[in-house]
Amino acid sequence: MSFGSTEMYSALNVSAITDLLDTYLSQPAIFDNVLIPQSFGGNKSINYYLTSQYSSEAEIYDYTINCRAATMGESRTIASTVIDTISRENGSNYYIYCEVLATISPADDLDNFNTPLTATIKLK
């Protein structure tokens, strides 16, 4: 069971968003995971993960979407584009609502700026 992650990936994997990201193994740098692969050498990426309990009755899932980049401006641009593209998005079997959170500064020289979003996806 994907718990909405397949739908979330489909919503994020559109040119308006992927054009802003680096690639990883010939794919857009969109990771369905809490961590970004250590072998990823780029700066601009998205990682997303489930942050709520699974309820088989409602099929509503809360995700965190991290929009990462080398600069605060790039990170916010990715986050803004994600919101403009997927918030209030009606897919064939889902609806998504997003909210932006405060940008997080890099923890060290190896880290990036991160503008996180919360995204609630409701399957139909």
Rank of each mutant, 00 (worst) to 15 (best):
R68Y: 03
V34S: 08
S92W: 03
L25C: 13
S15K: 12
T81N: 02
L35Q: 09
L123W: 04
Y61I: 00
A119T: 01
T85M: 00
T81S: 04
Y9G: 06
S39P: 01
D32R: 13
E59Y: 08
S105W: 06
Y95M: 02
V34A: 14
V100W: 05
K124Y: 08
D109P: 05
S52T: 13
L25F: 09
A107V: 07
D84Y: 07
R88P: 04
I83Y: 03
P28K: 00
E7H: 09
Y9Q: 13
N112W: 07
C98Q: 11
D111I: 04
N112M: 06
K122C: 01
N66P: 04
I60G: 00
Q38G: 12
I86S: 01
V14P: 08
T64G: 07
D84V: 09
D108Y: 11
L35K: 06
T23A: 12
A69D: 11
Y97M: 14
G41L: 04
K44R: 15
S80I: 02
N33I: 01
G91A: 10
I86D: 02
S92A: 12
S52W: 06
C98S: 14
N66M: 02
I46E: 06
T64A: 12
L101F: 09
G41D: 02
F3D: 04
S92E: 13
T85V: 01
L123H: 04
I60E: 10
M8C: 13
A16E: 14
Y48S: 07
Y94W: 06
D84E: 14
T18F: 08
L12T: 02
S26L: 07
A102C: 03
N13D: 11
D84Q: 14
I60S: 07
I65W: 00
V34H: 09
L123D: 05
A102F: 05
R68W: 05
N33A: 11
Y97W: 13
Y54F: 14
I86W: 00
G73C: 09
G42N: 01
G91V: 10
D62S: 13
